[in-house]
Write a protein that binds this DNA or RNA. Structure first.
Length: 799
RNA sequence: GCCCAGGUGGCGGAAUUGGUAGACGCGUUGGUCUCAAACACCAAUGGAGUAAUCCGUGCCGGUUCGAGCCCGGCUCUGGGUACCA
């Protein structure tokens, strides 16, 4: 099964079409066919509709709706559809020639390649994931995932409860809307701050402030997002305009400040300097008065951000504790008609268009610039193009395809964007359940039978991408009745990453001269990754470095005193971009794939991060050879015996079966490998090459070292693959001990052991211990206060 | 700042419900085999001490007959995340 094959992605297109044909009904709290919404519009218009929609959707009555043209109706429906086209500010990445989702942008640079990303307005397909924000949070309680991934998703969705409040601008019809989580502190507001990008900035700036504001805004826009976030110093400028406090009617200064983000909330805040540290810092820096609305709290040194005090100087909120006051404030704000209680999410709708070649094409065509979907039985495959590059006019690569290059062509033109990488990966686990179904993406009886993915082992780096989108699609497919569960992955384990050891060179600023690690502090340098293959033991091969890349061919070096160029080093994520990748090919060549596989498991617990270090690999390789020798004679001829295994042989085998079974349930693969080693060591010592024992051991080993297991299984005379052999049954009776080697401790410290019959009662054990010669020695003349006997486990003598 | 992990020999790590701390592997040392080496095999290997013995799971305290494990307080390391109003 390949997500890139048309047999697969035609179903991705089908799911996308279902999203387009659906809206989110808030009263049923699920996705519903858009037809139902249309019927509702025809009868009632949209004034009371319980549907999630774009904030700028106009209101209309039933008769207005019925009089709209098809095109107008379609335009409105786009505000409701879960897959919709809209002009969106997107993260445009020139370097990659495509749009990126928010989670693909890190610090203002593309996660892949590290290219700059800018904001650009484009017509794009988006998915209304925000409709699912709440369920994506609450659903986390039903899955067995690590706390950290749940936390990352919660933060990413970023639900905050509060109120949206609109402040009237003095002598103007304009209003400034803010979002606040602390409406109870509204009487502490005496200024407000807009982000430099806020749409009202220009309008609100009075002529005498114009120059200051313009230069401030210009400076802010020149900075990359990364620089702006890194810069924690307080900066801002006054517009000269005032807003009117909705309750007191007092003047409220309107400022502009970089610390307010354009992309969160409304891009403006009401500043409460006594209750918010950032506002406090801003007010202090610019000498703005700080009103104190907290009863008995000193705010001269810092803001008071906790909700643990009563309010003062706050009219109807006086002497009310914060929790109640928030409720009361929202009521009054709503009564006054200048705001409303609101839940705000940090999560944005997911942009679903990309401008590359490789990806799933949309089953969409345009007629008169309106988007239409193909009939259900038709799907689009990627057309052939002459180059995988954008056209000269900047359209996506698919725009290179001529009419006859498309397998389907309808309307004026086909959609030339493609879907993002996470489209296919959002539902592939469902296709696994029914990979050859030609009539459906996955038969309901199949998904009902297999259900959720029991265990998903994957990296934490997909926390806000793939793992969130899969949950969204699963919930959608569940809502529409296509599957019977609404979370894709029941349990998840995040495997630890293998870290690599990176090396660095130090380039002196604005030169092509590199200084050795030990002398780097004598210069202003920037640290650059260097390929670990041209570094040996932290010493750089200078000639190889010059040949490594064109720009270094004439590099000069300041060496350390012993004439070597020393590199810096650090253990970090193994990654191509860090040039610290060690491929396992060489190890496979030398030791075989079984050894590599076993060694990776043997390194330690699955979830743990660890640096790649091959020092111990010959240990597991020796184990494999030891197992081989167990079933071969000195001339390397396969040799097993058909003698009846001894009691001891059975004990060794069944001890191993038990342990392997237990450990696999705990996902503790490193200890399973140890168990195998112990088993082979014991069988070697017992000189046991019994066919019966070896067969069962081979099955146990087969999923850990598949190649050697298959080979030995075959040599044992089996026709079928070991992968379909039945897992050996554990038999407790082989492990019954008739004697117990009791550890005897004094005040909790183990001193000696005593071999006793397993059937002895507590009292008999105590008698035997007290009779023992060493007991008298450790008692040293004292008499025991108490003797604790835990049968078959331990004896503790308290003195 | 907040959230999540984690701290055990020279190293990777084990100890599953509170019950023998250091399984297994690496490394090291000594030995056997060999002309020699590699491989393999045998033995030793937490620290101190000739030994008896004593001390030992980041630090301080607590619970318990008994704590690497439970509780309280610290500390250090790793990871994630944030001018989110």
């Amino acid at each position: 099964m390949q997500t890139s094959s048309p047999n697969y992605y035609k179903w991705t297109q089908w799911i996308f079409k279902q999203l387009f044909d659906s809206y989110y009904c808030t009263s049923q709290d699920k996705a519903v066919q858009i037809l139902e919404l249309i019927l509702d519009f025809e009868k009632n218009g949209n004034k009371q509709s319980n549907a999630v929609c774009d904030e700028n959707t106009p209101e209309f009555s039933a008769s207005e709706w019925n009089n709209y043209s098809e095109k107008e109706q379609e335009k409105i429906l786009l505000n409701y559809r879960l897959a919709f086209l809209s002009d969106t500010w997107v993260n445009w990445c020139e370097g990659l020639g495509t749009v990126l989702a928010n989670d693909e942008v890190k610090d203002g640079l593309s996660e892949r390649g590290g290219f700059p990303v800018e904001q650009k307005l484009m017509k794009q397909w988006s998915l209304r994931i925000t409709a699912y924000a709440d369920r994506l949070i609450s659903g986390l309680d039903t899955v067995d995932w690590s706390e950290s991934i749940k936390e990352i998703q919660k933060n990413w969705i970023g639900k905050s409860k509060g109120a949206s409040v609109s402040f009237k601008v003095e002598d103007s019809e304009d209003r400034i809307e803010v979002f606040t989580t602390r409406p109870d502190t509204i009487f502490g507001v005496n200024f407000m701050v807009l982000s430099p990008e806020h749409e009202l900035v220009e309008k609100l700036t009075i002529s005498s402030q114009k120059e200051n504001v313009e230069s401030y805004v210009k400076k802010a826009k020149l900075k990359s997002e990364r620089e702006r976030q890194a810069d924690k110093s307080v900066s801002g400028v006054f517009t000269g305009s005032f807003a009117i406090h909705p309750f007191t009617g007092n003047k409220v200064e309107i400022w502009i400040g970089e610390y307010v983000l354009a992309t969160y909330g409304t891009g403006a805040v009401m500043a409460v300097p006594c209750g918010d540290q950032r506002d406090w810092d801003f007010a202090t820096h610019f000498g703005i008065e700080i009103l104190n609305i907290f009863d008995g709290v000193d705010i001269s040194e810092k803001a008071h951000e906790e909700k643990d005090v009563l309010l003062a100087n706050s009219d109807f909120l006086n002497a009310i504790p914060a929790k109640k006051a928030i409720q009361k404030a929202i009521e009054e704000i709503e009564n006054g008609g200048f705001g409303v209680g609101k839940i705000n999410y940090r999560l944005r709708d997911a942009i679903f268009s990309r401008q590359r070649y490789w990806g799933e094409p949309f089953p969409v065509y345009y007629k008169d610039e309106t988007a239409y979907f193909l009939e259900d039985d038709k799907h689009v495959t990627l057309p052939k193009v002459d180059k995988y590059l954008p056209t000269s006019s900047g359209e996506p690569p698919l725009a290179r395809a001529k009419k006859e290059d498309w397998n389907v062509f309808e309307g004026d033109r086909m959609e030339t964007n493609i879907m993002p990488g996470w489209a296919g990966s959002s539902w592939y686990f469902l296709r696994y359940m029914d990979p050859t179904n030609d009539g459906e993406f996955c038969g309901k009886e199949k998904s009902d039978y297999w259900g959720q993915v029991d265990l998903y082992i994957g990296g934490a780096e997909h926390a806000v991408g793939h793992l969130l989108y899969s949950r969204f699609w699963t919930k959608f497919l569940y809502d529409r009745g296509f599957i019977g569960f609404d979370e894709p992955f029941k349990k998840m384990i995040n495997q630890g990453m293998i870290l690599g050891r990176s090396n660095f060179v130090y380039r002196i600023k604005d030169t092509n001269t590199f200084v050795s690690f030990d002398k780097r502090k004598e210069h202003q340098t920037s640290r650059l990754h260097v390929d670990i293959r041209i570094v040996d033991n932290d010493v750089l091969d200078v000639e190889a470095f010059k040949n490594w890349r064109k720009e270094y061919s004439d590099a000069e070096f300041i060496l350390s005193d012993d004439g070597k160029y020393l590199c810096g080093n650090e253990v970090e994520k193994m990654s191509k971009s860090k040039y610290n990748v060690q491929t396992p090919d060489e190890l496979v060549e030398k030791f075989g794939a079984d050894t590599l596989r076993l060694y990776e498991m043997f390194l330690g617990p699955l979830e743990q991060f660890k640096p790649w270090d091959t020092k111990g690999i010959n240990g597991v390789h020796n184990f494999i050879r030891k197992f081989w020798r167990l079933v071969h004679d000195d001339e390397n001829n396969f040799l097993v015996s058909d003698d009846k295994p001894t009691q001891e042989n059975h004990k060794t085998l069944h001890k191993t079966i038990k342990k392997v079974e237990e450990e696999i349930n705990r996902h503790s693969f490193n200890t399973v490998v140890s168990t195998f080693m112990i088993c082979v060591n014991e069988l070697t010592e017992q000189k046991c090459n019994s066919r019966e024992i070896v067969s069962d051991f081979t099955i146990l080993l087969s999923s850990y070292a598949p190649h050697i297991s298959e080979e030995i299984w075959n040599k044992l005379g089996n026709e079928n693959s070991v992968t379909i052999a039945e897992f050996p049954k554990f038999n407790e009776s082989y492990l019954v001990e008739d004697q117990i080697n009791y550890p005897v401790s004094f005040n909790g410290k183990m001193r000696f052991k005593i071999l006793l019959d397993a059937e002895l009662t507590k009292d008999e054990v105590e008698d035997e211990v007290m009779k023992h010669e060493k007991t008298a020695h450790y008692l040293d003349g004292k008499s025991p206060k108490k003797v604790i006997v835990v049968q078959k486990r331990i004896v503790n003598i308290v003195m």
